[in-house]
Simulated scan of single mutants.
Amino acid sequence: AIEHVRFFYQNIWRSWDEEEEDEYDYFVRCVEPRLRLHYDILEDRVPSGLVVDYRNLLSQCEESYQTFLNLRSSLSNCNSDSEQENISMVEGLKLYSEIEQLKQKLKLIENPLLRYVFGYQKNSNIQAKGIRPNGQKVMHVVSSTMMTGLLQSLLRDRLCQEPCKEETEIQFHSDPLSAINACYEGDTVIVCPGHYTVHGTFSIADSIELEGYGLPDDIVIEKRGKGDTFVDCTGVDIKISGIKFIQHDAVEGILIIHRGKTTLENCVLQCETTGVTVRTSAEFLMKN
């Protein structure tokens, strides 16, 4: 019983809950959603960014509420109708309004139905690099191992399709994540056949092309780990083709398009939740 009480006050109880009067209503409105959120976080079912936002909001609300209590206590001990008291009352009203807004934001995150609709509008912090300083575009080739036959096929089919007036720089990578992180505006990433396992997020902020060399079932990119985005798109014009994406225990889905246009062609998305999320200011085009 003592452990249950300790758990309640450490993880569920909020200092402003003491103002709740209806115990049953309090349990339904506060205890149940907070308890569910607590275990969702433990089981990695909540994106890490959302967890950080929730804890920051919780700290802000606790701090504001303590300030409000101190101010209310000082007002109750003051008997005179002084100018200072009037100022304190105005400050108290502002604090009360601020606390109510913070509490509403917390409730949005605590509610599993509203959590991803209203409570968490994630914006990628990755800034576009723009055009490379020397003005050149680079072709990135991803392959866990590069055999002579594969290299010859690449040279014939993709790298030397037609005579070029300028030399094209080619960079080789062993995994697709490092290739995307090395991209600038206008670059192309060619992923060779293989099964690639990644643990991070593909944050694509520039207009690039990510294409598989072969059939989608032969080019598999699998995301390991729970809770976070797989492919995060904010570029003006992004093209992804010929790749199979696999995600396990997903929360947000494989592809999230925050802004700009993203074209998906001949790709396979294998996940357990929503495959694609398109924000209001974004455009998404899917081709087979």
Rank of each mutant, 00 (worst) to 15 (best):
F8C: 01
S59R: 15
V276M: 04
G92M: 01
M89I: 12
T234C: 06
V90L: 09
L58R: 07
L264G: 12
S178T: 05
N56F: 13
D206H: 00
D175E: 07
V28Q: 15
L35P: 10
I208M: 00
L50P: 03
L113R: 15
T280G: 02
G275I: 01
A250G: 08
E166N: 09
V5R: 06
P112H: 02
G225F: 07
L269N: 02
E209I: 05
V268W: 06
S281K: 10
S281A: 07
I254W: 03
E211H: 11
H173M: 00
G149W: 11
K122E: 11
D249P: 15
L113S: 15
S88Q: 15
G235K: 00
I204Y: 05
T274Q: 08
H4K: 14
V198K: 00
Q270W: 05
S153F: 13
S59I: 08
L154A: 04
Q152C: 09
L50M: 11
D232E: 13
H4I: 12
T262A: 09
Q101M: 07
S74T: 13
G212D: 08
V251G: 10
N70L: 09
N181M: 14
M139F: 04
D44Q: 12
H195Y: 11
G186A: 01
K239C: 09
S144D: 09
E252C: 14
I2K: 10
V28L: 15
L93F: 08
R72H: 13
D206Y: 00
F7T: 08
S174N: 11
F172R: 01
K226D: 12
F7S: 05
F230Q: 00
E91I: 11
P163G: 03
H38D: 04
F8S: 01
G194C: 04
K244W: 10
D232G: 04
G253T: 02
I254F: 03
D218S: 15
K129L: 03
K94R: 12
E91P: 05
G149L: 09
N77D: 11
K239G: 09
N11D: 08
N79M: 10
N111C: 14
G186I: 00
T234E: 04
T197S: 09
P193H: 06
I243S: 08
H248D: 05
T234H: 03
R259D: 05
S88I: 02
G49H: 09
S82R: 12
V51T: 15
K103E: 14
R279G: 02
G235W: 04
K107S: 14
N266V: 01
D218F: 13
I240A: 02
E83H: 12
E62R: 12
L151P: 02
E272C: 14
N86S: 12
S281D: 07
N111S: 15
G119V: 09
V278H: 05
